[in-house]
Simulated assay, not measured.
Amino acid sequence: MITVEDAMQKEVVKFKDVDTITYVSSILRGKKISGAPIVDEDNNVIGIVSEGDIMRLLEVHSPNLNLLLPAPFDLIELPVRMRVGLDEIAEDIGKAASIMVGEIMTKEVVTIKKDASISDAAALMDSKKVNRLPVVGENKKLIGIVTRGDIIGALGKTG
C-alpha cells in the first residue's frame, strides 16, 4: 500500500494569518502553486488559502454592452464605461493588497494523517472538492502536503 507519507511533499510553502494578500499572491505565483496552508506560531494548521479565495476578493466589473446593434451614444460612451471598469478593478486590487490572509482563508481545513493510503487521500479530495491536503501529525502540526499531482505521481511509480 502506498501511503500519504510516500507521496507527500515534506517542504511545504506555508503562511501566517498576518501575511498580506500581496505577499501570499507573489509567493504562490513564484512557486507556481495554487494554494497553501496557514499555520500558527507552533506550526499547527489553522487555515488554507487558494487562488480561488484570492480571486473572490476582486469584484468582476464588466460594462453591459450591446454589441449586436449599438446605438450611436453607446459608441461614444464605450470608452468611458471601459475606463470606469478598469478604475474599479484597480481600486479592488489596491484594497486587496492591505488585507491579511487570515481574513479570507478557509478555516475548516480538510487534513490527512501520513499513514493513510493515497487512495483514501484521493477519495477525500474528491468528496470534499479540495485540491490539496495538509498532512498533519499530533495536534494538527503540519508535517507535509499532498496534492492531486502528488497522488498521480505516486501511482506512476507503482507501474
Rank of each mutant, 00 (worst) to 15 (best):
I2L: 02
D6C: 12
A7T: 11
K10Y: 10
E11N: 05
V13Y: 05
K14A: 07
F15G: 01
K16L: 07
T20M: 13
I21L: 08
I21V: 15
T22M: 10
Y23A: 07
V24W: 10
I33F: 11
G35Y: 12
P37L: 02
V39W: 06
V39I: 12
D40V: 11
D40I: 11
D42R: 14
N43L: 14
N43D: 15
N44I: 12
V45R: 10
I46H: 01
I46S: 00
I48M: 12
V49E: 01
V49A: 02
E51H: 11
E51N: 13
G52K: 03
D53I: 15
M55C: 10
R56F: 09
L57R: 02
E59T: 12
E59P: 12
V60H: 12
H61S: 06
S62Y: 06
P63L: 10
P63C: 07
L65R: 08
N66W: 05
L67W: 11
L67Q: 10
L67F: 10
L69M: 03
L69S: 07
P70T: 14
A71F: 09
P72Y: 09
D74T: 08
L75Q: 09
P79G: 03
M82D: 04
G85M: 06
D87E: 08
D87C: 02
E88T: 03
I89M: 07
E91S: 06
G94A: 03
K95N: 14
M100E: 15
M100K: 15
V101Y: 04
G102H: 14
I104E: 00
M105Y: 15
M105R: 14
I112S: 02
K114Q: 14
K114F: 12
D115T: 09
D115M: 08
A116S: 13
S117C: 10
D120G: 04
D120N: 05
D120P: 05
A121V: 05
A121P: 09
A122W: 10
A123W: 04
D126V: 14
D126T: 14
S127T: 12
K129Q: 12
V130A: 00
N131T: 12
R132D: 05
E138W: 08
E138P: 06
N139K: 15
N139T: 11
K140F: 07
K141T: 13
I145L: 02
I145T: 02
I145P: 02
V146S: 00
T147W: 03
I151W: 01
I152S: 01
A154R: 00
L155C: 00
L155E: 00
G156M: 02
G156W: 02
K157W: 09
T158D: 01
